[in-house]
Design a protein around this nucleic acid. Sequence first.
DNA 1: CAATCTAGTTTTAATTTAAAACCAGATGAA
DNA 2: TTCATCTGGTTTTAAATTAAAACTAGATTG
Lengths: 143, 143
Amino acid sequence: MTQHQPCPVARALDAIGDRWSLLIVRDAFDGVQRFGDLQRNLGMARNILSDRLRKLVDAGVLQTQPASDGSAYQEYALTAKGLGLFPVVVALRQWGEDQLFAPGEAHSSLVEKASGQPVARMQPQTADGQVLAPSAAMVRKLG
Amino acid sequence: MTQHQPCPVARALDAIGDRWSLLIVRDAFDGVQRFGDLQRNLGMARNILSDRLRKLVDAGVLQTQPASDGSAYQEYALTAKGLGLFPVVVALRQWGEDQLFAPGEAHSSLVEKASGQPVARMQPQTADGQVLAPSAAMVRKLG
DNA sequence: CAATCTAGTTTTAATTTAAAACCAGATGAA
DNA sequence: TTCATCTGGTTTTAAATTAAAACTAGATTG
């Protein structure tokens, strides 16, 4: 898996496409920012978490900053680049909600804080706002 | 990584969150359906491709069907569940296009076949169509 | 019918992940 | 201020996964 893939999807998966990185990012969106909290939350090996955090920081998805509780520790926060993954996490969540739970099986769902209303289903759209079917899309090479 | 994760994101990543599965799905969206074509395209080991295809079929993301060229071989096609990953792949592609290429660096992009127009940027929205910022969303547990 | 192609499987080696022990510095309690 | 504990790691070793290559059976081509 060399660097500098020409396909944006491949390059994205190079950065965050392993088993743990997107779960770390999901937790970060939920406000989990401390090493220990991430480790307990995700139940993952500390050395692997350490490695992934380093890679996510190197990739510019996370950054370290002084802990907000005033202690001498640090916390991991999403950068602007990391915040850009919000649509990815939401799309993944919606696919999971739709496709991976038995009918009637309980699951969490994403709502707007202010209203408590569920978030709208994400769908690729054309420039003029029509829903875009997979078969109506194509990749234009090397723009 | 046990089965039956309560979080839809975790469950989704259990199904397609390894280094190869989403690349296979991306190729499937691009019409690549034959074992040999996938292997050559992705440059991955045959045994791993074989394993991933089996898992994706078991997960209901892909299904096998007779090859469309009339030969006795089979091909792997997206199921309805697999087609549901379109927003995930597009979101990932847009993040890659936005964040992972140097300014001016050439990259492919996704356009509408009919018009050649680029696909609109995906953004989570509230029920009434407002853009939803990450900080304005929350997870409601066990709906 | 022989050569080649397709879609795998098997075997073995290399890499990655996991678990557990370990450690240094920060914190908190007496 | 000192001792015990907490935090955020690293190191070591074992287990699991991935990769590369060789191999195979059935399909196709000439």
